[in-house]
Amino acid sequence: MIINHPLLGPRDSAEFTYMGDAKLIDRPDWQAPEALAQFIDYGYMRDNPDGAHRELWYHEQGDRSFLVVTRDTTTHEIFAVELARDVARSRGQSR
């Protein structure tokens, strides 16, 4: 596959390491009342969709950016590639 890196342009997916569902960005608040249940969901529950899927790809042999790639799991068509850092910020992850 070719992943169109937002900073570096098209790169072979062989340079990347697949890191799973992009939901891993949404790490729960450890002090929430239901934290344990939320972490179990976070750690183990995946949607496994037949179609568009947001997933993390780590450009390990490149610039070491984590990317959020929206990819069709049946056709491998890639709809969007974003820097995971930007996605994380937009989803409220901070510090």
Partner: peptide, 8 residues
């Protein structure tokens, strides 16, 4: 991963 995705 922690630096970029969890605590950007």
């Amino acid at each position: 991963f922690a630096r970029q995705c969890l605590w950007p």
